[in-house]
Design a protein around this nucleic acid. Structure first.
Lengths: 224, 224
DNA sequence: AATAAAATTTGACTTAGGTCATTTTTTTTG
DNA sequence: CAAAAAAAATGACCTAAGTCAAATTTTATT
C-alpha cells in the first residue's frame, strides 16, 4: 500500500501542474489518483465516451487521435511522460470526439473530474497552475496553426526535426513516420520525400526506421 | 461613479467566465476592473509588450494577429463582445508575440493578472470556470487544426460560411475578406475565387462588401 | 533463419491553390 | 459629388504537395 502510493506520487512529480505543490498538498492529491496500465495498442478511451477525467502520463506514449468524416485519422498530439490530458470534457460530462491509444506499454494516472474540481475549490493554487498550463498550450496550438497555413512543408519538417532533437545530434523518433506526417499535417509520402531530400542534401542522416542524425543544424534552421 | 461601476458590471454579465457568479461575487470582481475605450485601428497592445492582463471585450471587435518572419500577418482570432483574452502571458509576465487592434470603436474591460490570481485564490469557482473555457477553446483550436490539414479550401470556406451565418439566411461578415482569408489559412484571392464559384453555383449570393445570403444551405453542408 | 507482415520509399501523374499583375468595385475623404 | 484610396475580383501562370500503385526495406513471427 505504501509502495502503491509512492508510485502514484511519482506521477505528480512529473507533471508541471502538480510538481510545485508542497508535501501536504501533494499528499492530499495522491488520495484522488488511480493508476492504470495500458498495453501497447490498447485504448485509454474511445471516441464517443463520456470521460470527464484528467489523465497524466506516467510512463510510455499515448496517441490522441480523431477520425474525421472521410475516415482520415488526424493525430492531435502524442503524450509523453508528464503530459496531461483534460480538455473539453474534463468538467463538462460531454462525449469526446477523439480517442487515445497507447503506442507502447504505458501507465497513466487518472483523476476524476468532479473530485479534482472539489480539490481545486480547496486548493485554488492548483487551479491557477492548470490555467497557466492550458494557456500555454493554447498559445502553442495557435502558433502551430500559423505554421500550418503559412509555412512550407519543407520548413515544417525542418522545424519539427529540430524540436524533436532537443539539441542532441542523434535522436530517436518517438512515433512512426506515418503518425509524424499526420501531426505535421501532410501525408506520409510527402514526409518521406522531404526526408530523402534532406538526406541527399547532407542535412540529416537516417538510420533504421526511427533514428535521425543531424548533420547540418544551421542549414536546417534557415530552410524555407 | 455609480454609473461607471454599472458599466463595468455589464462587462461581467457578457462573459461566460463571470456571468454565473452571485451578486456578492460579482461586486467583488467589479472592484478589480478597469474599462478602456479603443478607437478604430488603435492598438490594445503591441507585439513585444509584457501585458499579464485579462481583457474582456465589452463592445466592438478586436483582432488578434501576429506577424511571422516573412512579414505575413496571421489573424489568430477576432474577439467579439463577451470574448476574453488571457493566454500565455496572463500569469507569466512574458512578452507577447502578437498584437491586438480594434476593428471598430470598442470598449474593453481590463483585469490585472496578479489581482485576478489573488481573487481566484479567494473564489476558486472562478478558476474552475476559466479552466472550463480554456479547455473548450483548446479543443476548438485542435479541431480547427484538423480542418487545416485535412479539409479542402472549398470545405473550409463552406463550413465557415455556415458557422458565421448562425442559422440565419442573410448575415454580415464581422471582418474584412482579407482577415477572413487569413483566419481560414488561405490567401484572399483564393477565398475570393471560391466565393465567386459558390455564387455561380447558386449556393450563396453576395451583396455589398460584407453581406452574404445563403441560397442552398444543404449543398453547402455537403461540399467536399 | 525463413517467411510474413508492416512500414517506408520511390515513381508517375494530377491538381489545388499560391503568386503576381491588372481590373473592377466599394468606401472614404475633401 | 468627385477624386482618391482601399478592398475585392479576375486572369495567366506555376509549383508544391497530394494520389495511386508498385517496389523496397525493416520489423515481427514461427
Amino acid at each position: 500500500m505504501e509502495k502503491e502510493k509512492k508510485q502514484y506520487a511519482s506521477c505528480l512529480i512529473k507533471v508541471p501542474i502538480f510538481n510545485h505543490l508542497n508535501e501536504v498538498e501533494q499528499e492530499s492529491i495522491v488520495e484522488l489518483i488511480d493508476a492504470r496500465k495500458i498495453n501497447k495498442d490498447s485504448f485509454l478511451y474511445h471516441q464517443g465516451e463520456k470521460k470527464s477525467q484528467l489523465y497524466v502520463v506516467h510512463q510510455g506514449k499515448i496517441k490522441i487521435s480523431r477520425y474525421n468524416e472521410d475516415g482520415h485519422e488526424q493525430v492531435i498530439r502524442i503524450l509523453m511522460p508528464g503530459d496531461f490530458l483534460g480538455d473539453e470534457t474534463l468538467f463538462s460530462h460531454k462525449e469526446t470526439d477523439n480517442f487515445a491509444v497507447a503506442l507502447e506499454e504505458s501507465s497513466v494516472c487518472v483523476l476524476d473530474g468532479d473530485q479534482l474540481k472539489k480539490h481545486i475549490t480547496k486548493n485554488p493554487e492548483i487551479g491557477i497552475r492548470i490555467i497557466h498550463e492550458l494557456s500555454q498550450r493554447l498559445s502553442e496550438s495557435e502558433r502551430k496553426m500559423e505554421s500550418y497555413s503559412l509555412e512550407s512543408v519543407n520548413r515544417r519538417v525542418a522545424s519539427s526535426i529540430l524540436k524533436l532533437s532537443s539539441d542532441k545530434k542523434v535522436f530517436e523518433l518517438p512515433f512512426s513516420k506515418k503518425d509524424w506526417a499526420s501531426i505535421l499535417g501532410m501525408n506520409q509520402e510527402t514526409l518521406s520525400r522531404k526526408l530523402s531530400q534532406f538526406k541527399k542534401d547532407h542535412l540529416i542522416d537516417l538510420k533504421e526506421q526511427r533514428k535521425i542524425i543531424i548533420l547540418n543544424r544551421k542549414e536546417l534552421e534557415t530552410i524555407r
